[in-house]
Design a protein around this nucleic acid. Structure first.
Lengths: 157, 157
DNA sequence: ACACAAATGTAATGTTATAACATTTCATCC
DNA sequence: GGATGAAATGTTATAACATTACATTTGTGT
């Protein structure tokens, strides 16, 4: 399934707010600031990167603990993904998509460090699940992180 | 493809030694000790766990740096996998298998923390690759870490 | 025995993440 | 509009994971 491209920030922020209301959570200004900052950077950031950026962009200090808490919040709200393989965080590319979210599949370029998020096909997902179910294992959360070189970087040799 | 169960330690150590010779690397006693320790524990361990275990089991101190270097070595020799999602390390289940290694797929039980390593089918692998190739991305290294609950833990509710 | 590369040791420090407890913010109810 | 209680954030300290830089030792080939 093809995903529509990200719409503008405004729309993403509104979607985020809606997501939060639905779960009785507060979309505070700091949380919003963190999300905006991450949208603006549009690349994986560490928690400490975010802390530094926040200071620069909003001229206001924020502690590491707070950043981690906000990231936890945004992850639970399905607005942000954690890249376990690099301990970094990135905004979900599909916030404004209306269909059910598929298994996120993150293609991480080891050259330019950009991340492309694609949705694995449902056929493939069910095959993968069947493969796993055969062992009696019950899947909880699935996110595939795949490392390689993106098409842009391949062109530059 | 079904994998044979792990054979005894002796055989694994021999296979490991052979792997190293092939690449002109030394399978030193410390590296061997670390591998044996990991085999013995048979569960994911952090680098610092290994450091502590080493001290206990061999009555000899070893530094964190050394542990990380040995882990790097064992990973490159394809004897050990790193679990990025938990910053832990575990011996590859397929060391003594003779066929080419498939994409390692690690089923991590979030209850008992045991890891089951299965090989993703080649059909599935090629589908996944096709899916990815469509985006122009070139895969480098693939390892799937999937979290859930293993069959034993499901039985205990 | 020498030379050289590989392996390991040592010390310091960088990076990622959480614990424990205090304070502030904000919606709700009276 | 003030009380109140939960959610959010602040503060301080520290735990856990990982690397850098440089010194020393070990083992192999000549």
């Amino acid at each position: 399934m093809k995903h529509t491209l990200n719409k503008n920030k405004q729309e993403i922020l509104q979607a985020a707010q809606k997501q939060c209301l639905k779960h009785d959570l507060r979309f505070t200004s700091k949380r919003s600031n963190v999300l905006q900052l991450m949208l603006h950077e549009n690349k994986p950031l560490s928690a400490y990167d975010i802390m530094a950026d926040y200071k620069t962009q909003y001229n206001q200090s924020i502690s590491a603990v707070s950043v981690y808490r906000m990231l936890d919040f945004l992850i639970h709200a399905q607005l942000v993904h954690k890249l376990a393989s690099s301990s970094q965080y990135i905004v979900c590319s599909h916030i404004t998509c209306h269909h059910a979210h598929e298994t996120p599949q993150l293609l991480i370029c080891d050259t330019c460090h950009q991340v492309e998020e694609i949705g694995i096909g449902t056929l493939l997902t069910s095959e993968l699940e069947a493969n796993i179910a055969a062992t009696g294992f019950k899947l909880q959360h699935q996110q595939l992180e795949l490392h390689g070189v993106c098409s842009s970087c391949q062109k530059l040799h």
